[in-house]
């Protein structure tokens, strides 16, 4: 596999972009930062499929495409299925010797938002990983159905205001905890599973390269800050992602073969979760006195999760 140098940013920047501008994602959207970085991590040919979501509808507005690689526009749930189908056909044709260029390295990648990964496309993803195809699934987790107006998904954290779990006098927003999809995918026995963040560009690039290199199904959950639905200024996308990783709301870690957990980023100064919540409009109601218990609950969950991750890293289970 032709991996590109990620030793430092200067060397990384000599790559030629294969994700073009003039797509219709919001200004400051983290989706395109993540997608660009993945495509710059390798010189191999890429076959990509996208689940319906912001990324898909914004990068292929007829008659335009922003992709310089093979890219499949597919339904809400089945990017994993489509790309594994393409992978199976590629292998079959390679065996039969009907490929035009059989030696050209090809990687198969699927992109999905959190709605299509955590909820709607979950069984398809689960099936594709269970069948053991050689592909990488990247979830762009912005914690709601941002494409259709910010409805709650099972990735929305507790306490967040969404258009279908509204905060007001009767409710403090979503009442259920976020699903731990990374652990679920690791439990499938996938050889490489990780949670990465775009502000830590090097660990993200390393994770992408590892996933593309690894034979077998790999799953990567990436934090994608959503300026529209999280309600913050577009210029603060990276700053907010910094707050997310430093408050350990989104710990950055990888799980190899389902048991070997490595924490990839340990914040020097762990900040309180209030700093992260306070920077976003969707959590504004939590700072009312009657909702104080929700913030305490979130902080407690984060502390427990971090302690659990550290124990897992040590015990290798």
């Amino acid at each position: 596999m032709a991996i590109t140098s990620i030793k430092n940013l200067k060397e990384f920047s000599t790559n030629n972009d294969r994700f073009e501008g003039a797509h219709l994602l919001c200004p400051g959207c983290a989706h395109s930062m993540i997608v660009r970085e993945l495509m710059n991590c390798t010189d191999d040919n890429l076959v990509i499929a996208s689940n319906t979501g912001c990324l898909e509808v914004s990068t292929a507005v007829y008659p335009y495409t922003s992709w310089d690689t093979s890219w499949i526009h597919i339904g809400f749930e089945n990017a994993a299925t489509a790309v594994t189908g393409a992978e199976a056909m590629y292998k079959a044709r390679k065996k039969k010797g009907t490929l035009k260029d059989p030696d050209a390295p090809v990687k198969f990648v699927a992109f999905g938002g959190d709605g299509s990964t955590y909820d709607i496309g979950f069984q398809w993803l689960s099936g594709a990983v269970e069948r053991g195809h050689d592909f990488t699934y990247v979830c762009l987790d912005n914690e709601n159905y941002a494409n259709t107006g910010g409805q709650r998904s099972s990735a929305t954290p507790i306490g967040a205001h969404t258009s279908t779990a509204q905060a007001g006098s009767a409710s403090y927003g979503k009442k259920q905890k976020k699903k731990d999809l990374v652990a679920i995918m690791a439990a499938h026995g996938a050889p490489y599973v990780a949670q990465l963040a775009p502000n830590k560009w090097k660990s993200m690039a390393k994770g992408f390269q590892k996933a593309l290199e690894t034979e077998g199904p790999c799953f990567i959950n990436t934090v994608s800050a959503c300026t529209t639905e999280w309600k913050f200024d577009p210029k603060d996308t990276i700053h907010l992602t910094d707050l997310a990783t430093d408050s350990l709301m989104f710990p950055v870690y990888e799980i190899i073969d389902g048991h070997e957990l490595n924490i990839l980023y340990r914040p020097k100064n762990v900040i309180k979760v209030e700093d992260y919540l306070g920077a976003q409009g969707r959590y504004r109601h939590l700072f009312k006195p009657e909702n104080k218990h929700v913030i305490e609950r979130i902080q407690k969950d984060i502390d427990e999760n971090w302690a659990m991750l550290q124990r897992r890293e040590e015990a290798r289970i």
Binding site: L9, K10, E11, F12, S13, T14, D17, F19, E20, G21, A22, H23, L25, P27, G28, C29, A30, H31, S32, M33, R36, E37, P198, W201, T237, I238
Partner: peptide, 20 residues
């Protein structure tokens, strides 16, 4: 200083960098 921070985080592929 050509650190390329803007290049890696530009969401619209709008920072033009050549030869570092």
């Amino acid at each position: 200083i050509d650190c390329q921070n803007c290049w890696v985080w530009c969401p619209d592929t709008s920072i033009i960098s050549r030869d570092k």
